[in-house]
Design a binder for these strands. Structure first.
Lengths: 152, 152
DNA sequence: GTCAGGTGGTTACAGATGTAACTGTCCATT
DNA sequence: AATGGACAGTTACATCTGTAACCACCTGAC
């Protein structure tokens, strides 16, 4: 019976992810009324330029319905516009509008600030160890998909 | 414009947490029809014995409504029973039933297996670095609560 | 004693999410 | 041409989640 949830890796990782994410999420949530899927889609489009919804999903690991809803939300905020593809009418190309690019610019400034704050808080060694560990996980586990359930 | 979501710590941590969590969550989801909050509550009660709902929430970082629902679900599965407190009638003491303890035992066996599998996959150094990094985050950020939003 | 404020726990409601089914389109085979 | 997958994206539905309001109860100040 020597089990403690607090030291179980899946639990610990989720806790850490929440701790680190929330302070940043609070920024885009309150400043721009943006949800996390919207922020991810905005970030993808901002850093890579024109993409399709499917590409956004692949880049930021979001389910296609999440992407669909995020794209609609960004469109309603007039931060993104859709264009049809000349050759394949199933596809929609997505581009940030000038307003969208402005928000993106402000957001990445906040992101950089936050990264610096984290670097200050978690001194260099903690941060490096964390990044190294995360790299290992990504490299090792990213292969096999494993099915998803209601966020549990 | 040198921003990439894929290297942004909040995003990376969330990805890693999902990768690591899902394979384990698949176990209790399919074997016992248990959700994550239920698993956490079961784990807390299994390892610490009698607790109140508030204590479970504090121990496993769950919102009190989540705990309330998880407790009800476990109760409906007959894995847990409530008892009133002699002195304070607001409080409910929660204990696992024999059936609950049996499930708990099976679950921690699975948890240990999974930890070993992870240790194999992520060789020793990756795992150690990760644990060290997580410890730093917990120690540093666990202090200030930061408000929560709809899971974003 | 009583009353105000705080606490343990539940619930109504609205927002978010995944699954599955669907629409429209493409393309390879016939 | 016609047709049977396969693919991009949307939507209906059920489930999950947090917020806020709530109930019952406790406690300390008066």
């Amino acid at each position: 019976m020597d089990f403690r949830l607090e030291t179980f890796l899946p639990y610990r990782l989720n806790q850490a992810a929440e701790l680190v994410s929330q302070r940043f999420a609070a920024q885009y949530r309150t400043r721009y009324r943006m949800t996390r899927p919207e922020w991810r889609a905005l970030a993808a489009l901002g850093s890579y330029g024109r993409m399709t919804a499917t590409e956004i999903g692949a880049n930021s690991s979001m389910h296609k319905t999440k992407v669909s809803r995020a794209v609609r939300a960004l469109e309603e905020k007039h931060w993104l516009k859709r264009s049809e593809d000349a050759a394949d009418r199933r596809i929609e190309h997505l581009d940030l509008t000038p307003a969208g690019r402005r928000i993106y610019g402000e957001m990445i400034a906040l992101a950089h600030e936050y990264e610096q704050e984290l670097a200050r808080l978690l001194d260099a060694s903690g941060l490096e160890q964390l990044q190294a560990g995360l790299a290992t996980i990504e490299a090792t586990l990213a292969v096999q998909p494993a099915r998803r359930g209601p966020s549990d």
